[in-house]
Simulated scan of single mutants.
Amino acid sequence: MNGEIVARAPGPPGAETILVGLYREHRLALVRFAVLLLGDREAAEDVVQDVFSGLHGRPPEPLTLTYIRVCVLNASRSVLRRRGIAARVMVGRREESVDSAETAALLGESRQEMLAALNRLPRRQREVLVLCYYLDLSHAGIAQMMRVRESTVRSTVFRALERLERELGGKA
């Protein structure tokens, strides 16, 4: 599933149809993945839309779910970088992330605490936990996707879980 060929984008005639099918089949899971990385549903939806827009009109090549996930991961990283730059420019002005009433109603208090703690983790730790526990990828799969050693993935997961446990005080 993780590395299987989802579709082979043919030349111009059927490419749009295949891309629309991929979008319909995987969009929601990819948006959820991006939400966990970004902590913002609107930005996550934009990232996924941008990834699929970027795939439109590309030359024929096999598209895998892993490839699309890497694109979403990289696009999410770009958004986080831009946010970091904007935050440094706006020194002294603190913007709080406010969930909509609908989102707040849907999420339970403990889930909100977990998501907040997850968002406070360093980027790499957050990414590894999301890839491991949300996408259920193996350490080897995560290492390949992030282009790091498997031992780096294991130690990063360990440190991230340790930090979450400290922050949540055994609530998890």
Rank of each mutant, 00 (worst) to 15 (best):
90 M>D: 15
57 G>W: 09
24 R>W: 08
128 V>K: 05
45 E>H: 05
157 V>K: 09
74 N>I: 07
123 R>T: 13
140 A>N: 14
87 A>G: 15
101 A>D: 09
129 L>C: 01
43 A>W: 01
167 E>H: 08
124 R>P: 03
15 A>D: 07
31 V>N: 00
112 Q>M: 14
87 A>N: 05
107 L>A: 12
55 L>N: 04
21 G>H: 01
32 R>I: 01
171 K>G: 04
83 R>V: 12
131 L>G: 03
151 S>Q: 12
85 I>H: 13
18 I>R: 15
12 P>L: 11
55 L>R: 04
126 R>F: 05
41 R>E: 14
138 S>C: 04
112 Q>N: 06
170 G>M: 03
32 R>M: 07
112 Q>I: 07
75 A>S: 05
65 L>Y: 11
148 V>D: 06
68 I>D: 09
137 L>Q: 05
62 P>A: 14
133 Y>A: 08
121 L>N: 01
70 V>W: 01
104 A>Y: 07
16 E>Q: 06
35 V>E: 12
112 Q>H: 11
67 Y>H: 12
7 A>E: 11
80 L>S: 07
61 E>K: 10
21 G>I: 01
34 A>T: 00
78 S>A: 12
102 E>Y: 10
116 A>Y: 08
39 G>P: 03
12 P>Y: 11
90 M>L: 15
144 Q>E: 13
8 R>E: 09
151 S>R: 11
67 Y>N: 03
116 A>C: 08
22 L>Q: 02
31 V>D: 00
29 A>K: 06
14 G>D: 14
94 R>H: 14
144 Q>P: 05
164 L>T: 08
50 D>F: 07
62 P>T: 05
23 Y>G: 10
81 R>V: 15
82 R>G: 13
155 S>C: 05
41 R>M: 06
108 G>H: 02
72 V>Y: 01
68 I>A: 10
89 V>W: 14
120 R>G: 04
28 L>S: 14
12 P>K: 06
138 S>H: 02
155 S>F: 08
84 G>L: 04
165 E>K: 15
89 V>E: 12
138 S>W: 00
106 L>T: 07
8 R>T: 14
34 A>I: 02
68 I>S: 08
25 E>R: 10
1 M>E: 03
7 A>Q: 06
99 D>F: 13
5 I>S: 06
1 M>Y: 02
7 A>I: 02
26 H>N: 09
45 E>G: 11
41 R>I: 10
40 D>M: 05
166 R>G: 07
54 G>D: 01
97 S>C: 12
42 E>V: 09
133 Y>H: 08
68 I>G: 03
21 G>P: 01
170 G>Q: 04
19 L>D: 03
100 S>M: 12
38 L>W: 10
128 V>R: 05
